[in-house]
Write a protein that binds this DNA or RNA. Structure first.
Lengths: 149, 149
DNA sequence: AATAGATAGTTTCATTTGCAACTATATGGA
DNA sequence: TCCATATAGTTGCAAATGAAACTATCTATT
């Protein structure tokens, strides 16, 4: 009879999932309530705001969202006039997505709120702890072999 | 014109979600493929294996699963003969769930696999790093005010 | 230049999830 | 005791998600 000692409470995948869900629940509720955005929509906006126009594929890679969700999120954002698509000059199958002024303006409202929520979550963290957490999470991600489509 | 500097890549909720999804994807695929269990089902088994019989409510609290998912997971496990329910002696609305010998046996198979996967994920971590990660995740969870139903 | 196979993105369909309503029992006060 | 309200758990229905099929275009090979 083998002595098994797996405590769910101390099991990393569980801890990670619980922490992530707690954070997600709180933050996504806020995006949703205040700006009517779902998480993938918010991510697309954030990525587009960082740089210039991109293909759906590039967006998906940058935001870690599968192409189906990118497609749906982009459709919703286009519908609301927050992004626009233009034909891809070099590839007729694709297109380039960019924020509209309205999209940029919305971003201007959300970003500070997002940063404030992050600050609140990390309120008790020192800069070093924050950096460490970031590093540890990236290492786990790599170890999990985040084989993204 | 305000200078906004939110890089999604460095945004904690995003990092946490990406890491958690990468881990979940890998591990839950394994539960599913090798044992036919979904995550909530695995969690219920893990909690029941740690202690004795419990009500669905207590189980949900311990595993951080809402009552609907507990109900469904318990139904599936009962169906497969991995757990059994008996009437709650003090409350006719509730019942007590416990692992069957089959359930305990299945747990005996899964737990080592789960621990091995965890070990693989944390392969490059020192004991101190591991403990630190655990602590940081718990602090974030608390800060997020994991107001569980 | 024609065709076969690959790729970008969308859509359809099945599954999963979550909310709200429901049943049954319990509790506390008139 | 009887009623009103609260709680445990389940179920039905609608929204969200994911896999596979589909359309259009591109690329490589002949």
């Amino acid at each position: 009879m083998s002595m098994m000692t797996l405590r769910l409470d101390a099991f990393l995948p569980y801890r990670l999932s619980v922490a992530s869900n707690a954070v997600s629940a709180r933050i996504s509720a806020s995006y949703r309530k205040r700006f009517g955005l779902k998480v993938p929509e918010w991510r697309l906006i954030a990525i587009l705001a960082e740089g210039s126009e991109m293909t759906p594929q590039a967006l998906g890679n940058a935001a870690r969202i599968d192409k189906i969700s990118v497609s749906r999120a982009a459709a919703a954002l286009t519908q609301r006039g927050l992004i626009v698509a233009r034909d891809h000059p070099g590839d007729g199958r694709s297109h380039l997505l960019a924020l509209t002024p309205e999209g940029r303006s919305l971003y201007g409202e959300i970003a500070p709120v997002a940063l404030a929520m992050e600050a609140e979550l990390l309120g008790s963290f020192s800069g070093a702890e924050r950096a460490l957490l970031d590093t540890l999470l990236r290492r786990i991600e790599t170890a999990a072999g985040a084989d993204f489509p």
